[in-house]
Design a protein around this nucleic acid. Structure first.
Lengths: 212, 212
DNA sequence: AATATTAGTGACCACTTGGTCATATTGTTA
DNA sequence: TAACAATATGACCAAGTGGTCACTAATATT
């Protein structure tokens, strides 16, 4: 956690430091991201930085905490807003809302993507301690719930499906980058909806020819 | 490409440099990987290194080229060995053989994983120019072939399915890490076979309850 | 044996890194 | 106004980076 001196700073200065840090940690992994650059970008001297934070990790964990808070708030809002949907509808909603979230908060999305790439295990675990597995728990809960309702086959492996669904998020982003060279949802809304539905149709109905 | 001086080196010395480089580029991204460490590990002076390679990128692209060659050779061998299998059988074979490959050549597997994390776009594109998309082409060819045989539904989106299948590789690795804390195939062979089948069953037969 | 060519070497360069610390500045209380 | 505490500051540090280069050693060629 940042020192008291950081929270005593005027809001504007604090936000400037935060956004400079988000920018830096978004485009480079932990070790490559530079405190010097963050200081330069937010116009604070090196010495001041260490007046606010004990070290680099202190800042990084703090920034990630902010991002995780925002993400959890967003998803739980979406879920609780539509409790009666089928699993297919729930997941479809989650994917499309996820794209919306990434569109509205591209910094946080980039931050999360960068985190998945992180090599330094000690840094990763420091962040994970601040809570992260909750999204996987959410998926499994949704799946088991759908099983109880008889919506999907009992024999489907919940963990396998959960991991598969999580992989789809990055698959969607990869598809957008491959095909359009960017990840702007609004520019290619039709194509993306079609792609998301293609993936979900495969998952829900299988690929085997029904006319056999 | 390395300079002539490199290829004039005795085999042993060349291989020592190569394996030192593979080790270094496996455990850190391009920028973090250190030429100094590679020199130290392979017992060659800094100056000699630049006698063999024009720069860091020259070495990296060369190393990746070796890995790609090995991977392509392996997969095309597997495919041509069993031309008459159904798509499900082909893909199942590819995944399990893929695990076998990762087990026998963990360095190359680690190298590939590290590459997917790479941030430096200019470095990425330098490698991609040496050929990489061929695995995606392979999948799509397999899928279209299966469609022509009436094995799978014509309406399934080939590109979507191809990306989905590629996602499975990372899903498998993630699953193994989550569940066992390592990626050693032999230690948990049963579980992994079960997991692969779970994933493939989802893809091929869907998750919807057939008793509706 | 003398010469010309190629390869081996490590000190050195400019630069960047995360982090420290003595000093200067500011704000608050007496 | 004087004293004291809290904060701001940037020169500085040791350690690392990729890359260079003058020099030496070995090998081929004459």
């Amino acid at each position: 956690m940042p020192k008291e001196t950081f929270f005593n700073l005027p809001r504007d200065k604090r936000n400037l430091i935060i956004s400079a840090a988000i920018e830096e940690f978004s485009k480079a992994d932990y070790n490559t991201a530079s405190i010097n650059q963050i200081c330069k970008k937010s116009n604070i001297p090196k010495g001041s930085f260490y007046q606010y934070f004990t070290d680099k990790l202190d800042l990084y964990v703090y920034i990630m905490t902010l991002a995780i808070e925002e993400k959890i708030k967003f998803f739980s809002d979406v879920i609780s807003e539509f409790p009666a949907l089928t699993l297919l509808e729930q997941i479809r909603l989650l994917f499309l809302k996820g794209l919306e979230f990434a569109k509205k908060h591209p910094q946080y999305a980039a931050l999360a993507e960068q985190f998945t790439k992180e090599n330094d295990e000690s840094v990763k675990s420091a962040v994970i301690k601040e809570g992260e597995k909750q999204s996987e728990a959410l998926f499994i809960q949704m799946i088991d719930n759908a099983k109880a309702k008889g919506e999907i086959d009992e024999k489907v492996d919940s963990v396998a499906l959960s991991i598969l669904l999580q992989s789809l998020n990055s698959a969607i982003n990869r598809y957008m980058l491959d095909k359009f060279g960017n990840v702007r949802y609004e520019d290619n809304q039709e194509d993306i909806n079609y792609f998301v539905d293609s993936l979900l149709n495969i998952i829900f109905f299988g690929i085997q020819n029904k006319n056999d």
